[in-house]
């Protein structure tokens, strides 16, 4: 009975189990992980959609609400994908729970896939709900729905990787929050969520093109309202290249056990 070692081994079961666990982790504290970001986004929608938005127009033919909603959706996707991998992996390192996983036959590939997929599910779920709420404020033309979904998935994948990287490098909660407060937040705000980069004076506009988030935000908005500062190809090309780079970086660290195995 004991130690028979005869139990059948299902090679992909570790992955599905880890994925299920990661989803349950954020679902159990849904007030924090789903509800809070939705309330935040709803407040933005209210301010920019129902109040200020009626007095502003940044692109001809669209209300300000229609302009800002795609940005708020992608902001929700980005923040929550990042928050999921970064907090889950960091807490697990911080409290030592990671050890329980490191002794199991979970492969590095399964490890990254499960963490990434759970983060994408949370990010895209928040994005979808923000979009549903936004319909109360303004309708969207959905110029290229498939490309919009592709951009949202790229954004969530990219920030899931960034979350893994941040969680591996962070030594304490302060460092971890620095990633979101001093890297992601400024990049989102300066990346054109609230204004089109094209209205900026020349030096600032040129600088915006070095902000990788500009391509994610602009590409996603372009796909939804049909107007953008860059082409689909450039927006997707830059975002996908960055996503692939961060994936290779995260995969290398997890494969090596960098800062995970002593």
């Amino acid at each position: 009975m004991m130690g028979s070692g005869l139990d059948r081994f299902y090679p992909w079961l570790p992955f599905w189990t880890l994925l299920r666990k990661e989803i349950r982790r954020f679902w159990r504290v849904a007030t924090q992980t789903i509800l809070t970001p939705i309330v935040t986004a709803s407040l933005y929608l209210f301010v920019f959609g129902a109040t200020l938005g009626t007095r502003l127009s940044v692109i001809e033919g669209f209300s300000y609400a229609q302009f800002v909603i795609p940005g708020l959706i992608i902001m929700g996707v980005i923040n929550n994908s990042f928050a999921n991998t970064s907090s889950s992996l960091f807490m697990s390192r911080y409290l030592g729970g990671i050890v329980e996983l490191l002794v199991t036959p979970v492969t590095p590939t399964q490890f990254i896939m499960a963490y990434t997929l759970a983060a994408m599910i949370r990010g895209l779920l928040v994005g979808t709900i923000v979009w549903l709420i936004s319909t109360l404020f303004a309708g969207l033309p959905w110029a290229s729905p498939l490309f919009a979904i592709l951009m949202a998935m790229t954004a969530s994948f990219l920030f899931a990787q960034f979350g893994l990287i941040a969680a591996i490098y962070a030594n304490n909660f302060d460092t971890l929050s620095m990633f979101s407060n001093f890297v992601i937040l400024p990049l989102i705000y300066l990346g054109g969520v609230f204004y089109p980069v094209s209205i900026l004076p020349a030096p600032w506009r040129a600088l915006s093109y070095f902000n990788p988030l500009f391509y994610l935000i602009d590409g996603f908005r372009h796909a939804i309202i049909g107007v953008g500062d860059t082409s689909y190809l450039v927006a997707f090309g830059v975002s996908a290249t960055l996503a692939a780079t961060l994936f290779v970086w995260a995969a290398w660290m997890i494969g090596k056990g960098y800062r995970l195995r002593s």
């Binding site: 992909w12 079961l13 666990k21 349950r24 982790r25 729970g97 996983l101 199991t104 036959p105």
Partner: peptide
């Protein structure tokens, strides 16, 4: 291999029963 570490490591998100089911899955065993 099965290992019991010196430091007590627990995942506060789960109950005993849930954690044991998950652990079986990590090992690829139904």
């Amino acid at each position: 291999l099965g290992v019991v570490h010196q430091e007590i490591v627990i995942d506060n998100f789960f109950t005993i029963d849930q954690a044991m089911k998950l652990h079986s899955g990590y090992y690829g065993v139904k």
